[in-house]
Simulated scan of single mutants.
Amino acid sequence: MRVGFVTLFPEMVLGALRHGVLGRAAERGLVSYAAADPRDFVYDRHRTVDDRPFGGFDGMLIKADPVVAAVRWLRPPHGAAVVFTDPTGDRFDQRAAEELSRRPEVVFVCGRYEGIDDRARLLVGTHTFSLGDFVLTGGEIPALAMADAVVRLLPGVVGSEGSLRQDSHQDGLLSAPQYTRPREIEGLAVPDELLSGDHRAAKRWQRAQALRLTRERRPDLFCRARLEKGDLDLLQ
Protein backbone atom coordinates (compact mmCIF):
# COMPACT_ATOMS: atom_id res chain seq x y z
CA MET A 1 0.00 0.00 0.00
CA ARG A 2 1.00 3.60 -0.55
CA VAL A 3 -0.19 6.33 1.80
CA GLY A 4 -0.08 9.88 0.49
CA PHE A 5 -0.61 13.25 2.10
CA VAL A 6 -1.55 16.61 0.64
CA THR A 7 -0.27 19.09 3.19
CA LEU A 8 1.36 22.49 3.56
CA PHE A 9 3.82 20.83 5.97
CA PRO A 10 5.16 17.68 4.27
CA GLU A 11 8.24 17.55 6.53
CA MET A 12 5.99 17.42 9.60
CA VAL A 13 4.11 14.40 8.26
CA LEU A 14 6.96 12.44 6.68
CA GLY A 15 9.18 13.04 9.70
CA ALA A 16 6.63 11.45 12.03
CA LEU A 17 6.34 8.42 9.74
CA ARG A 18 10.03 7.55 10.08
CA HIS A 19 9.57 6.26 13.63
CA GLY A 20 8.15 3.21 15.37
CA VAL A 21 5.94 0.62 13.73
CA LEU A 22 5.08 2.84 10.76
CA GLY A 23 8.73 3.52 10.02
CA ARG A 24 9.69 -0.15 10.24
CA ALA A 25 6.79 -1.06 7.95
CA ALA A 26 8.22 1.26 5.30
CA GLU A 27 11.74 -0.12 5.75
CA ARG A 28 10.40 -3.63 5.16
CA GLY A 29 8.55 -2.57 2.01
CA LEU A 30 5.08 -3.17 3.44
CA VAL A 31 4.00 0.43 2.85
CA SER A 32 5.38 3.57 1.23
CA TYR A 33 4.67 7.21 2.00
CA ALA A 34 4.54 10.30 -0.19
CA ALA A 35 3.54 13.92 0.29
CA ALA A 36 2.56 16.75 -2.03
CA ASP A 37 2.57 20.43 -1.05
CA PRO A 38 -0.18 22.53 -2.70
CA ARG A 39 2.32 25.42 -2.80
CA ASP A 40 4.20 23.52 -5.50
CA PHE A 41 1.19 23.88 -7.78
CA VAL A 42 0.78 27.66 -7.69
CA TYR A 43 2.97 29.95 -9.71
CA ASP A 44 2.68 33.45 -8.30
CA ARG A 45 5.65 35.08 -6.63
CA HIS A 46 4.48 34.33 -3.08
CA ARG A 47 3.18 30.78 -3.76
CA THR A 48 -0.23 31.80 -2.43
CA VAL A 49 -2.60 28.92 -1.70
CA ASP A 50 -5.25 30.73 0.36
CA ASP A 51 -7.82 33.45 -0.23
CA ARG A 52 -10.79 35.09 1.46
CA PRO A 53 -14.08 33.16 1.34
CA PHE A 54 -16.96 34.45 -0.74
CA GLY A 55 -19.82 35.85 1.34
CA GLY A 56 -17.67 38.14 3.45
CA PHE A 57 -17.00 35.52 6.15
CA ASP A 58 -13.99 35.64 8.48
CA GLY A 59 -10.75 33.75 7.97
CA MET A 60 -8.98 32.33 4.95
CA LEU A 61 -9.61 29.23 2.84
CA ILE A 62 -7.18 27.02 0.96
CA LYS A 63 -8.02 27.29 -2.72
CA ALA A 64 -9.38 24.26 -4.54
CA ASP A 65 -7.16 24.23 -7.62
CA PRO A 66 -3.75 23.64 -5.95
CA VAL A 67 -5.26 20.92 -3.74
CA VAL A 68 -6.79 19.14 -6.73
CA ALA A 69 -3.50 19.43 -8.63
CA ALA A 70 -1.55 18.00 -5.66
CA VAL A 71 -3.89 15.01 -5.36
CA ARG A 72 -3.65 14.31 -9.08
CA TRP A 73 0.16 14.64 -8.98
CA LEU A 74 0.21 11.74 -6.50
CA ARG A 75 -1.64 9.72 -9.16
CA PRO A 76 -3.85 7.61 -6.90
CA PRO A 77 -4.86 4.44 -8.81
CA HIS A 78 -8.38 3.25 -9.48
CA GLY A 79 -9.97 2.20 -6.19
CA ALA A 80 -7.84 4.51 -4.06
CA ALA A 81 -9.40 6.50 -1.22
CA VAL A 82 -8.91 10.27 -1.05
CA VAL A 83 -9.75 11.31 2.50
CA PHE A 84 -10.37 14.92 3.48
CA THR A 85 -9.80 15.60 7.18
CA ASP A 86 -12.49 17.99 8.36
CA PRO A 87 -14.50 18.51 11.58
CA THR A 88 -17.69 18.24 9.49
CA GLY A 89 -16.80 14.72 8.35
CA ASP A 90 -18.04 11.32 9.46
CA ARG A 91 -16.59 10.08 12.74
CA PHE A 92 -13.52 7.96 11.99
CA ASP A 93 -13.64 4.56 13.70
CA GLN A 94 -12.18 1.07 13.51
CA ARG A 95 -14.55 -0.01 10.76
CA ALA A 96 -13.43 2.94 8.65
CA ALA A 97 -9.79 1.96 9.27
CA GLU A 98 -10.51 -1.60 8.17
CA GLU A 99 -12.24 -0.41 5.00
CA LEU A 100 -9.36 1.92 4.09
CA SER A 101 -6.78 -0.81 4.76
CA ARG A 102 -8.28 -2.80 1.88
CA ARG A 103 -7.68 0.03 -0.61
CA PRO A 104 -4.60 0.01 -2.87
CA GLU A 105 -3.76 3.55 -1.77
CA VAL A 106 -5.04 6.17 0.65
CA VAL A 107 -4.41 9.90 0.21
CA PHE A 108 -5.12 12.17 3.17
CA VAL A 109 -5.87 15.81 2.36
CA CYS A 110 -4.99 18.01 5.33
CA GLY A 111 -6.88 21.25 5.77
CA ARG A 112 -5.61 24.47 7.35
CA TYR A 113 -7.04 27.89 8.24
CA GLU A 114 -10.86 27.81 7.91
CA GLY A 115 -10.66 24.75 5.66
CA ILE A 116 -10.50 23.99 1.95
CA ASP A 117 -12.75 25.28 -0.83
CA ASP A 118 -15.36 22.50 -0.92
CA ARG A 119 -15.05 22.08 -4.67
CA ALA A 120 -11.76 20.24 -4.10
CA ARG A 121 -13.59 17.57 -2.12
CA LEU A 122 -16.30 17.31 -4.76
CA LEU A 123 -13.73 16.90 -7.53
CA VAL A 124 -11.32 14.37 -6.02
CA GLY A 125 -12.56 13.26 -2.58
CA THR A 126 -14.02 9.86 -1.72
CA HIS A 127 -14.32 10.24 2.08
CA THR A 128 -14.46 13.03 4.67
CA PHE A 129 -13.52 12.05 8.21
CA SER A 130 -13.24 13.72 11.61
CA LEU A 131 -11.60 12.39 14.76
CA GLY A 132 -14.28 13.88 16.99
CA ASP A 133 -16.24 16.92 18.02
CA PHE A 134 -13.34 19.33 18.39
CA VAL A 135 -11.27 21.58 16.13
CA LEU A 136 -7.49 21.55 15.58
CA THR A 137 -5.23 24.03 13.83
CA GLY A 138 -4.70 21.67 10.91
CA GLY A 139 -5.47 18.26 9.46
CA GLU A 140 -1.98 16.76 9.73
CA ILE A 141 -2.40 15.26 13.21
CA PRO A 142 -5.77 13.66 12.37
CA ALA A 143 -4.31 12.36 9.10
CA LEU A 144 -1.37 10.77 10.93
CA ALA A 145 -3.70 9.20 13.49
CA MET A 146 -5.88 7.73 10.74
CA ALA A 147 -2.84 6.54 8.78
CA ASP A 148 -1.54 4.78 11.89
CA ALA A 149 -4.89 3.04 12.39
CA VAL A 150 -4.90 1.90 8.75
CA VAL A 151 -1.27 0.84 8.31
CA ARG A 152 -1.14 -1.28 11.48
CA LEU A 153 -3.89 -3.46 9.96
CA LEU A 154 -1.79 -4.37 6.91
CA PRO A 155 -0.47 -7.96 6.91
CA GLY A 156 2.94 -8.23 8.55
CA VAL A 157 3.04 -4.73 10.05
CA VAL A 158 2.20 -5.77 13.61
CA GLY A 159 4.29 -8.67 14.88
CA SER A 160 1.43 -10.61 16.47
CA GLU A 161 -1.72 -10.96 14.39
CA GLY A 162 -3.47 -12.18 17.55
CA SER A 163 -2.87 -8.85 19.26
CA LEU A 164 -4.94 -7.13 16.56
CA ARG A 165 -7.91 -9.33 17.39
CA GLN A 166 -7.68 -8.24 21.03
CA ASP A 167 -7.65 -4.52 20.28
CA SER A 168 -10.34 -2.19 21.53
CA HIS A 169 -13.13 -1.77 18.95
CA GLN A 170 -12.03 -4.79 16.91
CA ASP A 171 -15.20 -6.66 17.91
CA GLY A 172 -17.16 -3.58 18.94
CA LEU A 173 -15.97 -3.67 22.56
CA LEU A 174 -13.28 -1.90 24.55
CA SER A 175 -10.30 -4.02 25.55
CA ALA A 176 -10.08 -5.52 29.03
CA PRO A 177 -7.39 -4.18 31.41
CA GLN A 178 -4.00 -5.88 31.05
CA TYR A 179 -1.19 -6.52 33.53
CA THR A 180 2.45 -7.62 33.60
CA ARG A 181 5.13 -8.09 36.27
CA PRO A 182 5.33 -7.48 39.18
CA ARG A 183 2.30 -9.36 40.50
CA GLU A 184 1.65 -6.66 43.10
CA ILE A 185 2.48 -2.97 43.26
CA GLU A 186 1.55 -0.68 46.16
CA GLY A 187 -1.13 -3.10 47.32
CA LEU A 188 -2.69 -3.59 43.89
CA ALA A 189 -2.52 -7.24 42.79
CA VAL A 190 -3.03 -8.85 39.41
CA PRO A 191 -6.46 -10.59 39.28
CA ASP A 192 -6.29 -14.24 40.33
CA GLU A 193 -7.92 -15.40 37.09
CA LEU A 194 -4.84 -14.30 35.15
CA LEU A 195 -2.44 -16.17 37.44
CA SER A 196 -4.24 -19.52 37.66
CA GLY A 197 -2.70 -21.03 34.53
CA ASP A 198 -6.22 -21.81 33.27
CA HIS A 199 -6.32 -20.12 29.87
CA ARG A 200 -10.06 -20.66 29.47
CA ALA A 201 -10.72 -18.96 32.81
CA ALA A 202 -8.45 -16.08 31.78
CA LYS A 203 -10.35 -15.70 28.50
CA ARG A 204 -13.69 -15.67 30.34
CA TRP A 205 -12.37 -13.00 32.72
CA GLN A 206 -11.06 -10.96 29.78
CA ARG A 207 -14.41 -11.13 27.98
CA ALA A 208 -16.36 -10.20 31.11
CA GLN A 209 -14.11 -7.22 31.78
CA ALA A 210 -14.42 -6.01 28.18
CA LEU A 211 -18.20 -6.23 28.40
CA ARG A 212 -18.37 -4.40 31.74
CA LEU A 213 -15.91 -1.70 30.69
CA THR A 214 -17.76 -1.02 27.45
CA ARG A 215 -21.15 -0.91 29.17
CA GLU A 216 -19.86 1.54 31.79
CA ARG A 217 -17.69 3.83 29.67
CA ARG A 218 -19.19 3.59 26.18
CA PRO A 219 -22.86 2.55 26.37
CA ASP A 220 -23.22 3.74 22.77
CA LEU A 221 -20.74 1.06 21.67
CA PHE A 222 -22.26 -1.57 23.92
CA CYS A 223 -25.66 -1.13 22.27
CA ARG A 224 -24.09 -1.90 18.87
CA ALA A 225 -21.62 -4.59 19.98
CA ARG A 226 -21.69 -8.08 18.48
CA LEU A 227 -22.53 -10.08 21.61
CA GLU A 228 -21.79 -13.80 21.83
CA LYS A 229 -23.77 -16.58 23.45
CA GLY A 230 -23.14 -16.43 27.19
CA ASP A 231 -22.09 -12.77 27.27
CA LEU A 232 -25.11 -11.71 29.31
CA ASP A 233 -24.28 -14.40 31.88
CA LEU A 234 -20.77 -12.94 32.23
CA LEU A 235 -22.31 -9.59 33.14
CA GLN A 236 -24.26 -11.01 36.08
Rank of each mutant, 00 (worst) to 15 (best):
residue 231 D to R: 11
residue 211 L to C: 03
residue 207 R to E: 02
residue 11 E to I: 04
residue 145 A to I: 15
residue 139 G to Y: 08
residue 28 R to W: 07
residue 38 P to W: 03
residue 14 L to A: 10
residue 47 R to Y: 09
residue 184 E to W: 07
residue 70 A to I: 10
residue 147 A to L: 01
residue 92 F to Y: 14
residue 70 A to F: 06
residue 14 L to E: 05
residue 8 L to E: 07
residue 204 R to Q: 12
residue 157 V to E: 01
residue 175 S to R: 04
residue 201 A to D: 09
residue 16 A to E: 13
residue 114 E to F: 04
residue 1 M to Q: 03
residue 230 G to E: 09
residue 22 L to T: 06
residue 147 A to F: 08
residue 24 R to N: 06
residue 226 R to P: 00
residue 229 K to R: 14
residue 156 G to C: 09
residue 225 A to W: 10
residue 94 Q to E: 13
residue 20 G to F: 12
residue 221 L to H: 07
residue 95 R to K: 14
residue 13 V to R: 03
residue 30 L to G: 09
residue 73 W to L: 06
residue 110 C to M: 03
residue 12 M to I: 13
residue 226 R to D: 14
residue 52 R to Q: 13
residue 161 E to T: 12
residue 175 S to W: 00
residue 6 V to G: 05
residue 50 D to S: 11
residue 101 S to R: 10
residue 65 D to S: 06
residue 125 G to F: 04
residue 200 R to H: 09
residue 32 S to V: 13
residue 39 R to F: 09
residue 138 G to H: 09
residue 223 C to E: 14
residue 154 L to H: 10
residue 2 R to P: 04
residue 20 G to M: 10
residue 125 G to C: 12
residue 190 V to Y: 01
residue 42 V to L: 07
residue 71 V to W: 02
residue 65 D to C: 00
residue 142 P to M: 11
residue 12 M to S: 11
residue 141 I to V: 15
residue 217 R to C: 06
residue 134 F to N: 13
residue 30 L to V: 14
residue 226 R to S: 14
residue 173 L to D: 02
residue 19 H to P: 00
residue 118 D to E: 15
residue 199 H to W: 10
residue 44 D to A: 13
residue 64 A to C: 07
residue 137 T to G: 14
residue 6 V to M: 08
residue 126 T to G: 07
residue 12 M to Y: 14
residue 222 F to Y: 15
residue 211 L to V: 07
residue 22 L to K: 06
residue 225 A to Y: 04
residue 205 W to I: 08
residue 100 L to Y: 05
residue 201 A to K: 15
residue 29 G to H: 01
residue 191 P to C: 00
residue 44 D to S: 11
residue 186 E to N: 12
residue 15 G to V: 10
residue 200 R to E: 13
residue 201 A to P: 02
residue 70 A to W: 04
residue 8 L to M: 14
residue 36 A to Y: 06
residue 128 T to D: 11
residue 152 R to F: 08
residue 193 E to F: 01
residue 162 G to V: 02
residue 3 V to R: 00
residue 38 P to K: 02
residue 174 L to E: 07
residue 43 Y to G: 07
residue 83 V to H: 01
residue 53 P to H: 12
residue 214 T to E: 10
residue 70 A to P: 00
residue 94 Q to R: 14
residue 126 T to H: 01
residue 6 V to R: 03
residue 9 F to I: 09
residue 191 P to H: 02
residue 61 L to A: 04
residue 174 L to A: 01
residue 206 Q to F: 00
residue 117 D to R: 05
residue 80 A to F: 08
residue 207 R to Q: 03
residue 43 Y to K: 05
residue 156 G to L: 10
residue 180 T to L: 00
residue 16 A to T: 11
residue 150 V to N: 02
residue 224 R to K: 12
residue 169 H to M: 12
residue 181 R to I: 12
residue 93 D to T: 13
residue 200 R to P: 00
residue 20 G to V: 09
residue 196 S to W: 05
residue 79 G to M: 07
residue 165 R to D: 11
residue 182 P to F: 03
residue 188 L to N: 01
residue 12 M to K: 05
residue 19 H to T: 13
residue 18 R to C: 05
residue 92 F to S: 04
residue 116 I to R: 05
residue 67 V to N: 03
residue 146 M to G: 05
residue 45 R to M: 08
residue 193 E to L: 03
residue 90 D to C: 03
residue 162 G to L: 08
residue 63 K to C: 01
residue 209 Q to G: 01
residue 11 E to T: 12
residue 167 D to L: 13
residue 111 G to H: 04
residue 12 M to G: 00
